[in-house]
Structure formats: C-alpha cells, structure tokens
Design a protein around this nucleic acid. Structure first.
Lengths: 353, 353
DNA sequence: CTGAAAGCGCTAACAC
DNA sequence: GTGTTAGCGCTTTCAG
C-alpha cells in the first residue's frame, strides 16, 4: 500500500507549482498554458492521480453529499423512496449517506448529529422523533432539511407532505361504497402523525356515514416498540397478531382496513391461516401501494402513496435549496408540497349487497 | 446562519491553546488538569460545539465510513442485505454510503472511484462489472473490498460467497423428487456469475436424473439491459414476459424454476392472469427467499439465500480488516466464506404421482 | 501539564 | 500565465 499521489507530487515532477496543478486538475477554468496543462494531465493519468476530496472540502466547504434518514429499509415503501432519492442525487452528482433509524427517535438524532459533523449540508428525513430542539439548532447552523412521509413541526424545514387524512377518508368511503358497515381498523401505535391522520380521516368519514368503530373493531398495537426485527418482518407479524384478535370476535367485521400494506399482508396471512377467504369472507384494504401489493393474491386494494415520486421530489427540492443557499440568502419560504392519495382497486374488497 | 464554532473559539474564551482544547474534546486521554478540562467542557456545551470531522479526517486519515454498492435497492433481497450491513456498521460506529449501481457496470466503477476520492477505506460490493483493473488498482492503494452475492475475480478481495451451484441443484432435485419431469427454467441474462452458477447446478442435476431442458423450456431474457425501471418492477415484469412464452408452448412444463423470487412473482402473476392455477396446473419455484415469498399465496417454495446474515457477515469481516490493517501488515489471507443454500418448502410446488 | 508550530491536501487571493 | 502564501479545522510531535 503505497503513498497516494498528491498535487504536490505532480507539481514537482512537472516543475511547476502545486497551484498550477490544482488549476488544471480541478477544471477551474483558470488560464494555464496549453503546454503546461498537457504535461500535467499526462502526469496525472500516468500516476493515476486520484484527488482527495477531503482536502478539497476542508478548503471549500463544499460537499456533494446528502443524508437520508428513514425508519426502515425493509419496508419497500422506504426502499422505493430511497431509490427515488438516490437516483436524482446521482444525476446531480451527489452521494447519499443512508441511515436507518429503526423507528428509534434517539438513533435518528444521533444520525443527524453525525451527518452534521461530517459536514453534510442537506438531509431528507422521515422523522420518528418528536424533539424539535436539536433539529432546529442544526437548521440554524445552515442545515437544509426536507421532511418526507412524516410531517415535521419545524417551520424552517421543507415538507414533502402527503394527505394522509384524505387517504384515510378515501379508504373508508370506498369500503362504505362497497356496502360495508361492519368495518374495522388495524394499526400500529398511533404515535406518528401519519398514522394519526389516517386514523382521523378514516373515522371521520365513518362518522359522516353514520357508522362508528365499535368496541374491538379498533385494534392498535400495544407495545409501542415497533422495532424492525432482524428479518424486517415486524409490521407483518403485527398485522397477523391484530387480525387474530379480530377474527376471534363474536361478530366479525366484514372489512378490515390496515394502516399500511405490510400490516395488511399480515392480515392476509392470518386470514389464510385460519381458512378465512379474502374477499369472500372478509374484505381487506391496505395503505401505501408498495410493489408487492399487486403481486399477492388476491391483489390488495389500497391507497397509493407515491413513494418513488416522493423521494425524487424531496431530493430535487433539497438540491435546489442547496444550490441557491450559497447565492441568495432569501430562501423562498419553506414550501409545503402536498401529494395526493389515490385509490387503487384490486381484488381484496368484495361488494356487499 | 452563523459561523460554526471551532476549537480555536473555545481556546480563546478559555484562555488556553487550541491544542489543549483538542486534547479534551477528542477524548485523547492526554493529561489535562481537571480545572481546565471542566472549563473547556463547559464552554463546548454552552456554545454547542460540534466537531468538524473533515478537519479531523484530513489530519488523521481515519474515517468511520464504508461504502455499499448494490445493483438494486428495490429488490428486497438487497434491502435486507443492506439492513444487515447498516446495522452492524452502526453498532461499530460506522456510517454507510449507499450506492445503487442499477445493474450498470460503469456506474458501479464510477461509484467506486467517488468513494475512494472521499477517502472511504472499505467497500462492500455486489459487482456487476467484469473489469478487474480499476478495482485492483484501488485495492493496491489500500482499499478493503468485500464481495457479496457476486463472486469477484480479484484475489485480494474477501468473498462472502454463496453456493449458488448447490442451490440450483437443490431446486432441481426438489422438483424431480416431487415427480416432475417437464421442468423449465426462467432467468434473466446469464451475464452474472451467480445466475450462471444456479443455471449450471440446475441443469447438472437435471442431466444426472436423465432429464434435459428441451427447446423452449429454457427462457432467458433477451435484452441484456436489465435496468431497474422507475418502479423497480423490472424483474417482475421480466418474469411475466417469460412465463407468457412458456404458457404459450404446445407442451407446457409442469414446473417452472425462476432465477430469483422477484422473477418468480412475475411468473405467479402471469399464471394468475391466464387462469393457470399454481400449483395445480403448474408448480413454481423461486430463489432467494425474500420476505414476501412467505406472504404471497400460494406461499413460494424457494431456495434460501441468507440476505441479512450475508450483509452482517460482510460488514463484520470488513470492519475487522479495517481495524487490523492499520496495526499489522499481514492480512490473514483473503478468506472465502461460503454460505449454504437451504430449501424452503411452501405451497407452490405440487407433488406429481 | 500546557503551548507553539507544523502539516494533512487542496484552493484562492494576491503578487509578479 | 505562474508562483507564493495563507489557511480550512484538526491533531500531534516537540519543547518547556
């Protein structure tokens, strides 16, 4: 493992100063005679010069890196969002630091801190933590933050929002429209804004139709520790457990709405295990529309949340802010984009007459 | 956006030199009087000092960052492997640069280069590219490389191998054992070692049983451009397309083996679309055992490749090498771990009598 | 125990 | 066009 070659090595060999070498190798556009320029290029190629970005960054404080903090890479929803982020980052010459917070607010904060220490200037965050203080401090220090998926109660952050409430309403409306009256709701802990909003929209629409969520029809995970298991199958397991309770009820619901597709898969599995046919015996709806929702059978009827699109948009907004934040100081007011839900009808909901 | 506070700021306020501040704030264990130490700590807390890791790294050339290059984050197999990597990295105080090569060898090389420029000392790679030269050069410059999933023809790299050939054999043996004779194989382009090995193991076992892969029963994707579509559903689409051809054959096979689970899902979908019942009309097997293989119905019979485990192991091996590479020069010979396949029987294969 | 000084690799005024 | 110099934030000899 030999020593790495620096611009000084090249400068010495070329008989010029390292400043000149820097000028040509960094494509600064600074005038350098063609003769010298060629010579330097030649040497760089020959010696396989690889610039040390750390040196460069310390000097310029410019760094083409963004951070991404998500709660669970095992959930294809976040995988797809990450893909959208990574792709637009790459197209713009940026790299991505991926951080998996495992639904752990403390870990999320630690990651945020580490990213900042590494001089990352922009972060896309699906926040699990409620604490605003550390986040606001970092923003005041110049960090650009874009929140996806989970609304963040911090005014300086851009929000790529999603109308969860409306999504919840749509789910309820669809079920009601299909003739269902005994409708139940299965959800992980309501400690996150997104889940709460879906829940609110859902029950709201139910109430407007003169329906309610009777005792036992609302199943919420009791353990708030919704950690990713090693296999990443926690959400699914959770769906199974909650479905088990539901199916044990004396008066079974005719329809089950789950807070996301992963949970809905668990419900589907449990139904299959107990010989309950979907959609003939019970209808099931999910939320997210991850890739696999079209692959299970029956195909899962669900509310689409545009994962990839959301990631792409978040990254575009972030990079735009990163670019301009150097130039103009007046940031256009932290915009709030709001993406819309869409009903995806497949085969897991049966029409009741 | 105010200026960031540095050790010099603190030094000035404390009336000491920046060297002293560095000594206490970096936990160097260097003796500093308790009085001064406390004062510095106090100031650091008060001013919310955040160390600049770039400065530190330029000086020490130590950096707790690894790179991960995978072909597709949309495939849950890689998502799970990434989870395993990220988790062990975090436990050891490392961060992960995630790179999605999109099955593109050139992109893979570009990422490798960028990582190296950012002074990343270790990379976990599922390589798509055949070119060894640039990789070998980086290794000679001190980069530690751990190959997962795809064998890498570079002796200095550690391999976390998987016995694909054996996996292919197991699949064939299982199908044969269940009484199948008309067996077909559906695969994406055989340009990758893993796919080739599965194929070889599979056909080998077939031949040993006196069977062959008749005309039309071997379906290989023609377009070598197996790029991730925006939705990440390419592999699945591919499975559908290949299954369509298979089902159009005058003499349909009784069993279809797919090169991975994502492709198998496509096969499943196409069967459903054409009213072909699995496993009654045709049996289907996959490869990988991703999380969703247990969720579809019928549950997919498949060959397990330990994704999470593979990521964890790769990361452990990498970090071990990173730790020791500073101390001793003699690296234990680039070990080759070989993980074993396992048959996961579910409901997508029917016993023929 | 503490400080002065050098330097990691690079860039950017500022001279010439 | 090119070189000199200073310095980004930090650590680390080496003196004292």
């Amino acid at each position: 493992m030999k020593k790495r070659v620096t611009i000084h090595d090249i400068a010495k060999l070329a008989g010029v100063s390292s400043a000149t070498v820097s000028r040509v190798l960094s494509n600064s556009g600074y005038p350098v005679s063609d003769k010298v320029r060629c010579r330097i290029q030649e040497l760089a190629d020959e010696l396989h010069y690889i610039p040390n970005q750390i040196g460069k960054q310390l000097k310029t404080d410019i760094n083409r890196t963004i951070g991404v903090i998500i709660p669970s890479i095992s959930n294809p929803f976040y995988a797809a969002a990450t893909l959208g982020i990574e792709e637009t980052a790459r197209k713009n010459g940026y790299q991505v630091f991926l951080c998996n917070s495992r639904q752990d607010g403390r870990l999320e904060e630690a990651y945020l801190q580490t990213l900042f220490e590494k001089q990352v200037k922009g972060v896309i965050l699906s926040s699990i933590s409620g604490s605003r203080d550390p986040i606001e401090r970092l923003i005041r220090l110049g960090l650009q933050l874009v929140a996806i998926d989970q609304p963040l109660d911090v005014t300086e952050a851009v929000q790529i929002g999603f109308d969860y409430r409306q999504g919840g309403r749509m789910a309820a409306l669809h079920l009601i429209g299909q003739g269902h009256r005994a409708i139940s709701y299965v959800t992980a802990s309501l400690d996150r804004p997104s889940r709460r909003q879906i829940y609110e929209g859902f029950t709201e629409a139910l109430h407007e139709a003169g329906l309610s969520l009777p005792e036992g029809y609302l199943q919420i995970t009791e353990e708030s520790v919704l950690r990713e298991s090693a296999e990443g199958s926690f959400e699914c397991e959770n769906g199974r457990a909650l479905a088990r309770k539901l199916l044990a009820l004396p008066a079974r619901p005719t329809a089950i709405f789950a807070c996301n597709d992963m949970t809905a898969f668990g419900v589907l599995q449990q139904c299959a295990a107990e010989g309950v046919s979907v959609p003939d015996d019970v209808s099931v709806m999910g939320f997210d529309d991850i890739l696999f929702s079209s692959m299970v059978s029956p195909g899962l009827t669900t509310i689409k949340q545009p994962d990839y699109e959301m990631g792409r948009l978040a990254c575009e907004v972030l990079l735009a802010r990163l670019d301009e934040s150097g130039l103009e100081e007046k940031q256009e007011e932290a915009g709030q984009k709001l993406l819309k839900p869409r009903l995806i009808e497949r085969a897991s909901v049966k029409r009741l007459d």
